[in-house]
């Protein structure tokens, strides 16, 4: 069985993914993979550090399927991966979201199998 590090490592190899982060619901990072470093993504990572606890709380309280934040150059997709974890994927604005979803779902399935 693959570890979250391996799963996120593969997801971060995707053409569209700039970073993939697996959070515990309390905001602690379980795994983090950054595939493209740049100023814009640094800004998003700072924003995430400040806001992620709030976002995760809202996802949990409202039972949301996913949450998407769009910045000038980047998009952040939060997707509950298991009862206690949320996967966040940073992409460029304009990537094909439905095709990217196929890769995200695959990663989430692997995370769920690992968590079982």
């Amino acid at each position: 069985m693959r570890t979250p590090d391996e799963i996120l490592g593969e997801l971060a190899e995707s053409e569209w993914v700039e970073a993939a982060i697996l959070y515990r619901l309390d905001g602690e990072i379980i795994s983090l993979k950054i595939s493209r470093e740049g100023y814009s993504i640094l800004g998003v990572l700072h924003w995430m550090e400040r806001q992620v606890k709030h976002v995760l709380r809202v996802i949990e309280m409202e039972g949301l399927e996913n949450v998407i934040y769009t910045f000038e150059k980047n998009k952040v997709i939060f997707y509950p991966a298991s009862k206690s974890t949320v996967l966040a994927v940073i992409t460029e604005v304009g990537v094909h979201q439905q095709l990217l979803m196929m890769e995200i779902i695959k990663a989430i399935e692997s995370i769920r199998s690992y968590m079982r």
């Binding site: 190899e13 995707s14 053409e15 569209w16 095709l99 990217l100 196929m102 890769e103 695959k106």
Partner: peptide, 11 residues
């Protein structure tokens, strides 16, 4: 995208 045993991949 591809479908192969047993997954769908788009990258």
């Amino acid at each position: 995208a591809f479908v192969s045993p047993h997954e769908i991949r788009s990258d």
